[in-house]
């Protein structure tokens, strides 16, 4: 039994390393992204093996799902930038030499083979061999040093006993949620700030354009969205609520709701509401603002910022998680759409 599990672990780790290697060695970007999403899903399995179902859920939803969607839409945009005439009738323009990394002949040949077909492969040159061994020496040496260090470490219990001792006053029944929203709520607040900041940064770079042109959606996607949207919303709300006593919580719920928004924008790019930029700004900030505002109570009443009164801890945590979920979902959709609304500059 033990040996079988050990074998599973070894195979899983080897698989992860192999997929990561193939991903990073790839010369076809689309392939690299697909391998990366596979990598994320394999990681989720690894997290289950490490008794971390919450993280597995987050990895699948955020690490593989949202990151994957962002990567794919980025590839679409890059393709569009490098070959703006794609989809035009008639002969395709000559392949743009800068479209490939350093004038990679292979990629240009591929471009030429698919004139105007709309599936120009985004590729990049293989890395030149010069410096290969020094890079291998650096990273290999680092890996060995790290492993040697890890091998010397003892098996401490970490902070598990401390968390267990304080669960009864945390306001929730799930250890990770207690850590995230109570014991280390400051980390979570700053993490919300980080999500917001990514959105602000992307907005500062320019206005959003329409999503890149894509083939007219067939009947499948809108139909599927009609079915999936309610399911996603129910799942999101369930995850949010479940977080207090079981795997789940604001970030997973936000990711699921964000994914629903992304699906909707994919299926019907022109029916997405273009909200008033003022409302949008307030929407993406509201989660963190609400969190901080409620936390100020502890600053004045003592003992410190972000203290929840014992008997109010559960409702406060639920309110904060709801706000965080909505802001996260909104920011994720905004990041997918791209830059800021043109109306903001008016």
């Amino acid at each position: 039994m033990n040996a079988a599990l050990l074998a599973f672990d070894v195979v899983l780790l080897a698989g992860l390393l192999g997929v990561a290697w193939r991903c990073l060695a790839s010369t076809d970007l689309f392939r690299a992204v697909v391998l990366f999403i596979t990598f994320g899903l394999l990681l989720a399995i690894a997290w289950v093996r490490l008794e971390a179902p919450d993280i597995a859920l987050a990895e699948a939803a955020i690490g593989a799902g949202i990151t994957g969607a962002l990567l794919l839409v980025t590839l679409e945009r890059l393709k569009h930038i490098m070959n703006p005439h794609r989809g035009d009738a008639g002969p395709s323009p000559p392949p743009d030499p800068v479209a490939s990394d350093t004038g990679n002949a292979d990629a240009e040949a591929r471009d030429a083979r698919d004139p105007g077909a709309g599936n120009v492969a985004l590729s990049c040159a293989p890395t030149p061999a010069r410096g290969r061994w020094s890079a291998v020496a650096v990273s290999g040496g680092l890996a060995l040093l790290l492993m040697a260090t890890l091998a010397t470490q003892d098996h401490g219990p970490g902070l598990q006993p401390a968390v267990a001792a304080h669960m009864d006053v945390s306001g929730v029944d799930h250890g990770i949620t207690a850590v995230l929203l109570n014991f280390r709520a400051w980390d979570t607040l700053l993490e919300l700030a980080m999500v917001l900041l990514a959105g602000l940064g992307a907005w500062s770079l320019g206005r959003h354009d329409a999503l890149p042109a894509r083939p007219a959606p067939g009947p499948v996607l809108p139909g599927a969205v009609r079915l999936l949207l309610p399911v996603a919303i129910v799942t999101g709300v369930y995850l949010l609520w479940a977080g207090s006593h079981a795997p789940g919580g604001a970030f997973q719920a936000g990711a699921v709701l964000g994914a629903a928004g992304i699906l909707m924008s994919l299926a019907r790019p022109h029916s997405l509401p273009d909200p008033d930029p003022r409302l949008l700004r307030i929407g993406v900030t509201a989660g963190a603002l609400l969190f901080l505002a409620l936390g100020l109570w502890g600053l004045f009443a003592g003992p410190a910022l972000l203290t929840w009164p014992r008997n109010l801890a559960y409702p406060l945590i639920l309110i904060i998680e709801t706000g965080a979920t909505l802001s996260i979902a909104l920011t994720l959709v905004a990041l997918f759409v791209g830059g800021r609304s043109p109306r903001e500059d008016a």
Partner: peptide, 18 residues
Amino acid sequence: GALAAVSLGLPLLASAWP
């Protein structure tokens, strides 16, 4: 605590209402 709250609150307000 107040220094930390202000360091976070000011940028948040500015982000909500640029």
